[in-house]
Amino acid sequence: MSADGKSRVPGAESGGRRPTPSWDAVAGPSEPEPLSEQDRRLLDLLQRDFPLSPRPYAELGERVGLAEEEVCRRVERWQKSGLVRRLGAVFDSRRLGYRSTLVAASVPPERLDEVVEAINAEPGVTHNYLREPGPYNLWFTLTAPGEEELQAALERIKARTGMSLLSLPATRLFKINVRFEVSG
């Protein structure tokens, strides 16, 4: 089985010869930035123990041995570099009345750019990934302000792409944890 980074990528055969698609801009992993032990401790605390107090960075600074201004400086740098992708509230969309589903499509390589563009144009599409192996190679999440709106968005995507879609709504959540151990 092709179980390493050198493995073949479906669509890459033709992908290499085509002009770079617009969505390539969000594609590639960049070099991880070097982080000191102190940076890692701070990142862990920022993820799992952000103080809900008027001066949160001062509190974090006390815990890792940095001045408040220095914590602010580092956080701002990480926000700019993209290492810190979000800082603040992560909402439960269901409790705000939103409904979502995971959608799978089997897209022929020659139609990939066009179909991805049409899907990504739908505002409720928050994540979209090319996966292998097939037959279902495109997997995206669709969120809308209610069940009817969700179905309408699915129909719009079907109409725009002419693709048949598998909609796989969640029936039970066991775990959602986007925190990563960076220290140790």
Partner: peptide, 9 residues
């Protein structure tokens, strides 16, 4: 409430 990191980084 807190930071979300880019995991590949």
């Amino acid at each position: 409430f807190g930071a979300t990191l880019k995991h590949y980084e």
